[in-house]
C-alpha cells in the first residue's frame, strides 16, 4: 500500500487542526456571538444596493421632513435634510467597514514586515527599525492622522492612508516579540546548521508561527481602525461626498445640526450603536481567537 504524499498529509493535518480550532472557538459563546453579528452586518452592507435605493442618500431628493421622529415610513426617523436615518446607517456601514478593513490590512502588513525584519536581522537593522517603531508608537497617532488628512486631498484613500500609516507600530512590536521568541527556539539553530538561509528560516519557520498571532491582531485592530475612522470623520476629515456617508460623518452632521438640543435621539443613537456593536463584535471574535491560538490563556 502506498501512503499518501507528504503534501497531501500536510494539508489533511491542517484540515484537522482547523476543525479542532473551530471546535475550541465554538466553545466560547462570546466569540460565536461576535462572529454571528459580523456575518449579519457584512451581509447587510454588501446587499445594501440590492435591498435599498441609493438615491435616498441624495440631499436634493430627500422625501422626509427635517428631523422627523421614527414612524412607519421612516423606522429610524430622518436627518435635517429629511433623509432616512436607517438608509444612512445601512450605507454608512459600507464605508466604515471597508475603511476599517483596508486600513487594518495596510497597517498589519507594514507592522508584520517591519517586525520580522527587526527581529530576524540583528544589530543595525534591528536597532534602526525599533527606533522608528518606538517613535511612531509613542507619537499620538490621531494627531499624526489629523495632520496627514489635513494636508492631503480629502477622501476615502487619504483616511485609509492616515490610519494605516499611523497604527502599524503596535503590530510591529507584537510581531517582533513573537519572532524573537521563535528565533530563540533551538529548531531555528538546527535549520541554520542544516544550511538554511534567511529566506528559509523566515518562510518555513517564522512566518507560519507568527501568522496566527497576526490574524488575531488584525481582528482586534479592525475595531480600533473603525473607531479611528469615525473620529477623523467626526472632526470633519472624512469623505466630503454626501453620497458616501460613514457613521462618523453621520454623527458629525448630528452634532452640527444640534441633534442633542433638538432631542433627536434617533439621529444620535443608530450610528453610535452601530460603531459600538461592530467594534465589540470584532473584539469578541479576536479575543476568542486569541484564546484558541494562545493555549496559555485557555487553561483554568
Amino acid at each position: 500500500m502506498r501512503t499518501p504524499s507528504p503534501r497531501a498529509l500536510a494539508w489533511h493535518r491542517r484540515g484537522v487542526a482547523f476543525a479542532a480550532g473551530w471546535r475550541e472557538f465554538a466553545k466560547q459563546k462570546s466569540g460565536l456571538v461576535g462572529l454571528g453579528l459580523l456575518v449579519v452586518i457584512v451581509l447587510l452592507a454588501v446587499l445594501a444596493p440590492v435591498i435599498t435605493d441609493r438615491t435616498g442618500l441624495d440631499v436634493t431628493k430627500a422625501t422626509g421632513d427635517r428631523l422627523e421622529a421614527p414612524s412607519g415610513e421612516f423606522w429610524l426617523g430622518t436627518d435635517r435634510p429629511g433623509r432616512s436615518v436607517l438608509l444612512l446607517t445601512l450605507w454608512s456601514a459600507r464605508v466604515s467597514l471597508s475603511v476599517g478593513l483596508i486600513a487594518t490590512l495596510l497597517s498589519v502588513a507594514i507592522g508584520t514586515i517591519i517586525g520580522i525584519l527587526a527581529a530576524h536581522f540583528g544589530r543595525w537593522v534591528s536597532a534602526g527599525l525599533m527606533r522608528i517603531t518606538d517613535f511612531f508608537l509613542v507619537l499620538p497617532s490621531l494627531v499624526l492622522a489629523i495632520a496627514l488628512s489635513t494636508v492631503l486631498e480629502r477622501g476615502m484613500g487619504t483616511i485609509i492612508l492616515a490610519i494605516g500609516l499611523t497604527s502599524w507600530p503596535a503590530a510591529a512590536r507584537l510581531v517582533r516579540a513573537q519572532t524573537l521568541t521563535i528565533e530563540a527556539r533551538p529548531y531555528i539553530e538546527r535549520a541554520k546548521a542544516l544550511g538554511g538561509g534567511h529566506l528559509h528560516v523566515i518562510t518555513k519557520h517564522v512566518l507560519p508561527a507568527v501568522l496566527p498571532l497576526v490574524f488575531v491582531n488584525t481582528t482586534l485592530a479592525v475595531g480600533s481602525a473603525i473607531v479611528a475612522e469615525s473620529t477623523l470623520s467626526f472632526l470633519g476629515l472624512g469623505d466630503p461626498d454626501p453620497m458616501r456617508p460613514s457613521w462618523g460623518s453621520m454623527l458629525r452632521s448630528a452634532w452640527l445640526d444640534s441633534a442633542i438640543i433638538a432631542g433627536a435621539w434617533w439621529y444620535l443613537l443608530p450610528p453610535g450603536i452601530a460603531i459600538g456593536v461592530v467594534v465589540l463584535a470584532f473584539t469578541m471574535c479576536g479575543r476568542a481567537l486569541e484564546a484558541v491560538l494562545n493555549p496559555r490563556l485557555r487553561e483554568g
Binding site: 529548531y187 538546527r190 519557520h205
Partner: peptide, 22 residues
Amino acid sequence: LVLQDPTSALNPRHSVYESIAE
C-alpha cells in the same frame, strides 16, 4: 548538529517527514 533538547529542536508544526526532509 544535534541539539540538547529534542522537544525544542523540532518545529512543533512540522511532521517527522518534513523535519527530516528539511
